[in-house]
Design a protein around this nucleic acid. Sequence first.
DNA 1: CAGAAAACAGACAGACTTGTTTGTTTGGCA
DNA 2: TGCCAAACAAACAAGTCTGTCTGTTTTCTG
Lengths: 190, 190
Amino acid sequence: MKRAEKREHLIDVAAELFNRFGYHAAGVDQVIAEAGIAKTTLYRHFGSKEELIVAVLKRTDEQFRDAMRQVVDRTGCTPKQKLLATFDFLEGWFKDKAFYGCPFMSAAGEYAERLSPVFHEAAMHKRLMVAYFEELARAAGLSEPARLAEEINLLQEGAIAVAHITGDPKAAAKAMAVAARLIEDAGKAA
Amino acid sequence: MKRAEKREHLIDVAAELFNRFGYHAAGVDQVIAEAGIAKTTLYRHFGSKEELIVAVLKRTDEQFRDAMRQVVDRTGCTPKQKLLATFDFLEGWFKDKAFYGCPFMSAAGEYAERLSPVFHEAAMHKRLMVAYFEELARAAGLSEPARLAEEINLLQEGAIAVAHITGDPKAAAKAMAVAARLIEDAGKAA
DNA sequence: CAGAAAACAGACAGACTTGTTTGTTTGGCA
DNA sequence: TGCCAAACAAACAAGTCTGTCTGTTTTCTG
């Protein structure tokens, strides 16, 4: 395994453990044991546990939005369907056995100081999500795309929370049904 | 201060610290220092930190739903307005300087094992919230009250998450606007 | 007032935390 | 092949964590 690969693998392992057990509960020792590397190597790549967490969130954000884009581009035929396809992506995520709620919200919960780099990274991800929804809404020629994007975002966040707490992936479909009505209305008004 | 009062005070202090710093990050020593009691006293009342956390969540749930009921009963004149008043309650919460996101979602994030008593308590709170929304929807004579309650719940969870991450209390009003449309539709169909 | 129960401060145990240090081994590149 | 940087294991430091124990003081109750 090459150096760059090893770094990626380390981030992947850390992401899984942080997501599953929590950012405080999962320790550095657990990460290196699971990743099969020495502690010195981890601290060479990342100066501290917090830096590792930030790196994990950055990578998770990239992977998350890429994966959503793929589902949207593959599933949605019309621009309106693309907006709804974001909920199909959610449903797939909820059905994954490695779904333990939103890692960004969990991070924001454990590092609640707004100045914390961890909180900042979580907030950044959410901003990028809303921006993506707005991009889709605009492409669909819907009225008030910024407002619609925020409404879709509300529904997605709600779906994630509900799916986490109930364990029921149908939260995605229920949120999608509401989103469909909002999109329909925004289509009429346009 | 009487024994019962001391116990209540202890729970209040613990709730504030857990909510603010996180359940793992806030330690038992911090709780007793802030509450001004001896560690032996804490461990007499609660056998472990986890038991304390569960007690905190139980109490927070009661206070939360009582406070919401009060706002609903005071603010809402018509049954439909009562449903919308739940969002007024949220807005007040978001504006509170002690708002650090939903303590139940944070707890569920840190104690992700579904068998954990902590997770169970968080899930219980969410079920009771949906039940309350359904009660209000039924009282308003709206069609499909169970479905509407779940939709309102989605919007509330979304509003909490968005308000936490953005720090903007207006998330409540935005969610309320969507809820108003759902209620309106459920009124026509009835 | 006397006795019992509980609260107190503080030390203590033992395990765990992040992060550093040491000295050895390995792997890639010239 | 020879070198250098990096990875390695393992011990270590310094601090934190939960939970227990001791002995004293307060407080409630019969």
